[in-house]
């Protein structure tokens, strides 16, 4: 019934699916605490299917909804998918546009990472990627819906530090992206800019200011240090993107 690669992809993502479900249950609890209905949460799970972005949306959810701010926030958090999508080009070699359009929706950080690891061993395909995506989608929906049920029973969220859950989960996620000492200068820049911008600017612009400002540090550094080498590389390797 399912493509063998789909089944392999599904199984390869099972271990991480447990932590995805657990992490999803935290989102569910926070959503219930913030008066977001289960149906809205399920629509997010199925059609946005991006953990960090959904946490940000749940955190920003208030009445009246800041529509523009939230969409910009989601766009900024999910900018990385542009690179993730580009890196999957070899996995989708010679597949139809319809197949690409269908499978890409279920690309998350986890099944992407597992697929890229399998790709290095020559064992990846878009069906493998899709199998992983379906596994994660199932875990994500089960986790968030369970959390949402539990969340409506919690009377004193501050006694359980739930107001700190958002900060804690993003701190942990951020550390997962640490690439070593070369990140020190950009990260300090990002933190300082974000804290200053939050105090000075309205809304959630501090995310853009801090994030872009921090990422400009290594970009400017590479521009200053090796302008000639960069120029030559860009000319000699026109397909060096991946």
């Amino acid at each position: 019934m399912f493509h063998p690669d789909f089944q392999r992809g599904f199984r390869a993502n099972l271990p991480i699916a447990f932590s995805v479900a657990a992490y999803g249950s935290v989102l569910g609890v926070l959503a219930a605490q913030n008066q977001i209905g289960w149906l809205v949460l399920l629509v997010m799970d199925l059609f946005i299917f991006a953990g960090s972005a959904q946490f940000v949306m749940v955190d920003m959810w208030s009445s009246p909804l800041p529509v523009g701010e939230m969409v910009v926030g989601v766009a900024v958090i999910n900018l990385r998918y542009l690179l993730i999508g580009a890196s999957l080009e070899p996995v989708f070699k010679s597949k139809s546009i319809r197949h690409k359009a269908a499978v890409m929706h279920l690309v998350a950080d986890e099944n992407w990472a597992i697929t890229m690891a399998a790709q290095r061993r020559g064992a990846a395909s878009s069906e493998f990627l899709l199998g992983g995506g379906c596994c994660l989608l199932l875990a994500w929906c089960l986790g968030t819906m369970t959390g949402h049920q539990l969340g409506s029973f919690i009377r004193h969220p501050e006694a359980l530090a739930l107001d700190f859950a958002f900060t804690a989960v993003f701190t942990a996620l951020t550390i997962g992206l640490w690439r070593g000492p070369k990140d020190l200068a950009p990260w300090i820049t990002a933190a300082v800019l974000a804290v200053s911008a939050e105090a000075l600017l309205p809304g959630k612009w501090y995310i853009v200011v801090g994030g872009v400002g921090g990422a400009l540090v290594p970009a400017v550094r590479s521009l200053i240090q090796e302008p000639r080498r960069n120029h030559r590389q860009a000319k000699e390797e026109p397909h060096a993107l991946n």
Partner: peptide
């Protein structure tokens, strides 16, 4: 490479900017 360096550094700095305040 300048654009790539920027885009590769972005996920980390974005999440940090989100959480630092």
């Amino acid at each position: 490479p300048v654009f790539r360096t920027f885009m590769e550094a972005l996920p980390g700095t974005i999440l940090l900017a989100l959480v630092a305040p």
